[in-house]
Design a protein around this nucleic acid. Structure first.
Lengths: 344, 344
DNA sequence: GTTAGCACTCAATCAAGGAGAGTGCTAACA
DNA sequence: TGTTAGCACTCTCCTTGATTGAGTGCTAAC
């Protein structure tokens, strides 16, 4: 059987109606809702076909129909193919320029949650393709030195190292110069064993510290990478009865609190990236188990080359895909601009 | 009317039973549960008295009794007065020594939630009585310098400052020495205007930067102070039917996500501190509106003098007060030890 | 191919009727 | 005088059955 034009229209009408109401939609409703001028009986026949084809389903024998995951998928694909809509609203909402990445991300995710009324998340831009801007070792007290690592985009990491011997000021200065001249401007991947060997040699008796620092650099970047995720609007799930029962709500809330459960989503997103950077996961398509009754829309954002992060919106399957996608596009642009400004 | 010994025993029996079951408890249950050897009829008479006195109440005419807020209060006060119980379990759970305060706090709050099966929160120790350990300015690029501020307890704050003119290495070095010699070992309050004036004078043409740095120090410490709160186990509220309905759950979860709503709790706790540092808020006693159907147990912890933070456990009114308080005492001790170790 | 009509199904709602838990009160007992 | 047994009463909860209404599938007519 084929999805002819009439079937498509009916399917879309069903989905759109369901998105609004959250209730199963019957043949009579469609008969009046669309401008097809068909009787409910005809619609019923078509609906039976659509059900057989797997686009819609009945919660129980004498209820209306609701979209299946496959139905949503069809709807979303059709919509994504449409040309982009104009973007304007929400333009000013974002903030003055922010030094602190963390504050910026928290603000973004909050605004987004308020705007969409769904639960939202954002991952800090991954740094591992990024260039080291600056390293600084300082003595904190007799047995500890502080390593401050600044990465392009002004992301700052701190690390306290324990040392056995007390280091003199000159030694520290030397080490600082050594580290900076050798490593600045390099990405994490570009630091290879050969370089490390050379540096250790140059460091003489303090070669231990060199390797400790490099370990720290690698480690501290890796460590946070999969954890820096901010969320907002978790309690929006209670707006949607189909997600609000205790079992589901509890699991979802747990996922949002234990943020490392969200890393799967981030990874998946960065993996199967498409041209727009926007993806839609419906129901079981999502990589996070607890969201199997939700839809998830993700967008990749870029803060200069290589600095990619993920934004996610989590809501019911009957999410307002249109609005969500528009909002995310918009946000992508804004973040892009923000970066350019900062760079000036 | 007076609370004689028998009434007290009956009241405690009622509360204890209710803590376990969460169901209203009837006279027959108490008649068998206690070793008083009284018939249910006698218990009924006493219960009528207790109700009149306000310690218990009936959800509806022919249900058993449940404790009122006042009843809980009586129970908790009586319990707190008892001598401390022995502490042992959970001893090893805490961690190897942690450099990063943040990681430590996150771990603590998580372990606590798993242990108690309630929702938990912890506030980072307030720093404003604390001593500056170390300041370091570094040039990041032509127009930005990075100020790293380390405070006793190895709390690290970063701050990027914009400068108009490019600063030479020598200038930076001079400024670093100036700042450190003048400010190290001082608490935020001890930095007064006279000192700042002297420093500015010594800094000559770079006096702008001195004030900017000091501003940054003050600001960055203040800024985080009321926001660094970590939570865990939010979804534990679903274990308790009396908290799990949508309205309440949604509000609570929102409170836990918008952590600044919890600052009220922290402030309150630090304010009406008692000798043990442990407080119990029952129902409407809690300073956070959304928790009016919960009980909140808070503990003040100290990481060296002046570094005080708050731990909170939020659960239903029929919380296992005994266990919670024991656990918190335990934790206080452990954190205390941890600090001493770190100081060595 | 479309539509009207009818029989059928099922969830949701409501009222009625018990069952069960628990109470208050009274009268008897030690 | 304090305690207890017993009984009538109250109220929630659960079950049951009837009703309603939305929606369907099928068939026959247009």
């Amino acid at each position: 059987m084929q999805l002819d034009e009439r079937k498509t229209k009916i399917l879309q009408a069903i989905i759109r109606n369901y998105l609004e109401t959250g209730e199963p939609v019957g043949s009579r409703t469609i008969s009046k809702y669309t401008d097809l001028n068909l009787s409910s009986a005809t619609i019923r026949n078509e609906m039976a076909d659509l059900e057989e084809m797997g686009y819609i389903l009945q919660p129980h024998t004498s209820a209306g129909r609701i979209p299946s995951d496959m139905g949503y998928r069809f709807y979303v694909d059709a919509m994504m193919a449409e040309k982009e809509r104009e973007v304007d609203e929400m333009k000013e909402m974002l903030v003055e320029r922010q030094d602190k990445m963390e504050t910026l991300l928290k603000q973004v995710v909050k605004v987004l949650a308020q705007n969409t009324q769904y639960a939202t998340m954002i991952s800090a831009p991954s740094t591992h393709r990024n260039k080291l801007k600056f390293i600084q070792l300082s003595r904190v007290d007799a047995s500890h030195i502080l390593a401050v690592i600044v990465i392009e985009g002004n992301v700052i990491k701190n690390n306290i190292l324990e040392v056995n011997e007390e280091l003199s000021d000159e030694t520290l200065l030397k080490l600082n110069i050594l580290l900076n001249t050798n490593l600045n401007g390099l990405s994490i991947e570009e630091i290879n064993l050969g370089m490390i060997a050379t540096m250790k040699q140059q460091a003489g008796i303090h070669s231990d510290i060199v390797s400790e620092v490099i370990d720290a650099v690698a480690q501290s970047i890796k460590a946070d990478e999969d954890l820096e995720i901010y969320t907002s609007g978790t309690n929006n799930i209670f707006r949607y009865p189909e997600l609000a029962d205790q079992q589901r709500a509890s699991e979802l809330i747990n996922t949002f609190e234990e943020k490392q459960q969200l890393t799967g989503l981030v990874q998946e997103t960065l993996l199967d990236e498409n041209s727009t950077g926007i993806q839609v996961y419906i129901g079981n398509e999502t990589p996070v188990q607890s969201m199997k009754d939700c839809s998830v829309v993700t967008a990749t954002y870029e803060l200069g080359e290589g600095m990619k992060g993920t934004i996610g919106i989590i809501g019911p399957k009957r999410m307002d895909y249109d609005k969500v996608i528009r909002t995310l596009r918009n946000l992508q642009n804004q973040l892009d601009e923000l970066y350019k400004e900062e760079d000036k």
